[in-house]
Amino acid sequence: MKNFFIYTAALILLSSCSDVIELDLNNTDSKLVIDAVMERNGELGVTFTRIQLTRSAGFYDEELVFVNDATITITDANGNLIPIPFRADGVYDSNFPFITINDPTENSYTLTINDNGDLYTATENLQLTVPFTEVEQQTISGLGDDITEITAFFTDPEGFGNYYLFEYSDIDNEEVDTRDDEFSDGNRTQTTFFIEEAVPGTVATIRIKGIDQRCFNFYETLLQQAGEGGGGPFATQPAVVRGNIINTTDSARFPFGYFRISEVFEVDYTIE
């Protein structure tokens, strides 16, 4: 009798299945994808600006199309235009010390990209954040292979509406997460990453980045779209994720992506 139940339970669990199917999909016009960040390391005080330009493609296209011939400048609060030179593979970066210690959040910076005649711009200010205080690790078993839970703690400043972007990266994994402080204002709070097949002895870097509410909404919508998709009772609706960059030449050919200026703290953690 016991065997019957095990067999039936297994049958039901195995009886649901997923398989990969080929679909005949339409392709829409390609748009420029702008991943632009200006980050100031909170401990070292240095500013690093990096912009990667790619083009959106058809769903099944494997090749990532880089844009290597655009002209990028950043205008600071005094009106100075600083060019951001091309590096390689759609990446443009610069170590120019944009963000000064005095009034770091007061000054706004304008990103301008000229892509074959189309002008894209965005204006942003620095968003501050706080450093991590400690990192903990736990293992979760019982859902198939063991999963490693990495939790990084920090103290949310009381009173301000704080929004955070977190990044986890190690040799094999790259994860992104966001949160706000609506229910944790003023408290010691955390971010948690669930990593499969974490290799003990390797080093993981966890970063905390300050963002504003608009960027938080952008990432929330983006994360809903990534890895979900259509159909099923729990799916949320597909959406075109609009960022903060506009095409001043032709507003219909808007870009994907975001221009973010964040203070960043990071911590290196060795996985046990």
Binding site: L23, L25, N26, N27, T28, S30, K31, V33, D35, T54, R55, S56, A57, G58, F59, D61, L64, E174, V176, L222, L223, Q225, A226, G227, G229, G230, G231, Q237, P238, A239, V240, V241, F256, G257, Y258
Partner: peptide, 20 residues
């Protein structure tokens, strides 16, 4: 009913489909 994608792009290491 389902919404099919009509394209995709990469952003911050994430794979993002765009939809019809």
């Amino acid at each position: 009913p389902i919404t099919y994608p009509n394209g995709q792009y990469e952003f911050d290491g994430l794979f993002i489909p765009t939809f019809e």
